Amino acid sequence: MTETMGVAIGIGVLALVFIYLGCLMWKKEKITLLHSYHYDKVSPSDKKGFCKISGWGVIFIGIGLLVTAIIIGITDSVLSFIAFALGFVVGLVLLIYAGAKYNR
Rank of each mutant, 00 (worst) to 15 (best):
V89W: 11
R104D: 11
H38F: 15
T32K: 06
I82L: 14
I53Q: 12
Y37D: 10
G62C: 08
V93I: 15
A100V: 00
K41M: 11
K101L: 06
L92H: 13
S43Q: 12
K27G: 00
T4F: 00
M5E: 05
R104Y: 07
L24Y: 00
Y37V: 03
G10V: 01
A8K: 12
S45T: 13
K28P: 02
V67A: 08
L65Q: 07
I82P: 08
K48D: 13
G10M: 06
G55S: 01
I11T: 03
G91D: 12
I82D: 09
G22K: 14
V7C: 06
V93D: 05
V67W: 03
T68D: 01
V13G: 05
P44Y: 07
K41L: 09
I9L: 15
D46T: 14
H35W: 09
Y97I: 06
I71H: 05
T32V: 02
I71Y: 02
A15K: 04
K30S: 09
L86Q: 07
L14C: 09
G99Q: 15
H35A: 13
G22P: 14
L14F: 09
F88D: 15
G73F: 01
V67G: 00
I96S: 09
K52E: 05
I31M: 14
S45M: 05
L94D: 12
T2K: 06
G64R: 06
F50T: 10
V13D: 04
I61V: 14
V90H: 02
K27Y: 10
H35G: 12
M25F: 04
L14D: 03
T75M: 04
I31Q: 10
S45F: 02
G64N: 07
V17M: 12
L14K: 00
D40L: 03
V78F: 04
